[in-house]
Amino acid sequence: MQRRSFLKNIAAAMAATAVVPHVSMAADAKPKGPNEFSLKEAVAAITGGKPLQTSPKIKLKAPEIAENGAVVPVKVDVDSAMTDAEHVQAIYVLATKNNNVRCAYVHLTPANGQATFGTRVKLGGTQDVLAIAKMSDGSFISASQNVKVTIGGCG
């Protein structure tokens, strides 16, 4: 099994929804190679230049210290009724200091029932993980957490 398809399966298994959201991984065909997106560019491509607002409505769950930097469990929960009038349209997970900052982009509809998405991301080093949610009113809310990737050694 390819790592990428494996990750997709995990993501699907962990999204606590009856309807599997459409998952597009970072390798979308774009004029620019995914590795060439800076964090600023990647965020701008998501928001179209609109401001990001930190909000208690979006919860990012990640370990303080990664057990294994190659597979760091990350879960995003957005508090939303998921109705036609008010729902989360997409969840984005970004690793702010990876060569490829874009980890997972998930598109949702009210039929998902719940705006929850969990996956594993690979972190090249200690950095902030950034989660962004696109809301149906056109706003973008975000949460971030520092995850330490260490060789360890104390005890």
Binding site: I65, N146, T150, G152, G153, C154, G155
Partner: peptide
């Protein structure tokens, strides 16, 4: 890296040992 595990100002990012 080891120093940051010992001396991080946030105890949640320490691992509770001493320097190698």
């Amino acid at each position: 890296d080891i120093a940051d595990n010992v001396f991080n100002e946030n105890p949640l990012y320490q691992q509770g040992g001493d320097m190698s």
